[in-house]
């Protein structure tokens, strides 16, 4: 795997192919409320990743018998558009998309107050428009912004980052090449305020201490993503700030 193909992922100064340091995130920009029809939506660019998320709900469950009597159902569909990757991806759902839909749902579920709207569903649709490594965690980061934008009650947002292993060293937010030629990939998602991990997976080889270190690195990166999530949501509705400050509420 690593280096065997003749690709050096780190230079002599320990900088990565795209110039980043090992613990550096790619440039991340999130926009909230980008779609008119969806109840909530968000768009994220993380490096060359471009992912759009739409949330519909709470709404009636179809088919009706799938409704849960005591809580809201959360349904999640992760999908990659055919032109999102270099070799056209067949539009039919792949096994990878089926698995990612499940783990993404399970990453968002702990944050939502599901008991507030029994017998309804909230549907999260994730479309990867362009992919360049770490799409599942970027999707989670955008999806929780879309859920907040839709007014879904939550105890925290959820943000995610991948920790990779390139030439024996742990690296934050690996891109496509680093994922393909590196020695491991560990996507991690957390509720930032609570410090609770809602998604953790791995492939490759990690020692026990590397897992501990990865968790720490992820936590720091997720704190930065959380700031961007808040910024995106606040900026969307910031016009209100001017109006309220112009009025005297407190006398």
């Amino acid at each position: 795997m690593g280096g065997a193909e003749g690709i050096k992922l780190l230079d002599e100064e320990g900088r990565r192919l795209d110039g980043r340091a090992l613990n550096e995130l790619r440039k991340c920009r999130i926009e909230a409320g980008v779609l008119k029809n969806a109840n909530g939506s968000a768009y994220i660019e993380l490096g060359r990743n471009k992912i759009l998320v739409a949330v519909y709900g709470p709404r009636e469950v179809h088919p009706r018998h799938e409704a849960l009597p005591d809580r809201m159902l959360l349904r999640c569909k992760y999908s990659m558009l055919p032109f999102s990757v270099p070799d056209r991806k067949n539009p039919a759902p792949s096994r990878r998309e089926v698995e990612l839909s499940k783990v993404i749902r399970e990453a968002l579920e702990p944050a939502i107050f599901l008991e507030e709207y029994p017998r309804t569903t909230v549907d999260v649709y994730i479309e990867v428009i362009e992919a360049d490594g770490s799409t599942r965690v970027a999707s989670i980061t955008a999806a929780s912004v879309a859920l907040a934008d839709a007014g879904i009650p939550m105890r925290d947002l959820v943000a995610g980052v991948s920790v990779g292993k390139i030439e024996g060293k742990l690296a934050i937010d690996i891109n496509g090449i680093e994922d393909q030629y590196g020695e491991g990939d560990m996507p991690i998602a957390m509720m930032p305020r609570l410090g609770e991990i809602t998604l953790i997976q791995a492939d490759g080889r990690f020692t026990r201490d590397e897992v501990v270190q990865a968790l720490q690195m992820a936590r720091e990166a997720i704190a930065k993503l959380y700031e961007e999530q808040k910024r995106a949501l606040k900026e969307k509705y910031s016009r209100i700030l001017e109006e309220v400050e112009g009025s005297e509420v407190m006398r």
Partner: peptide, 24 residues
């Protein structure tokens, strides 16, 4: 004793400490 796959499943969450305890 390398970890070559990890998969969290279910509707709940783990603290970082719990992940490490479970790993050990």
């Amino acid at each position: 004793d390398n970890v070559c796959a990890i998969q969290k499943g279910g509707r709940g969450s783990f603290s970082a400490d719990e992940v490490v305890k479970a790993l050990d």
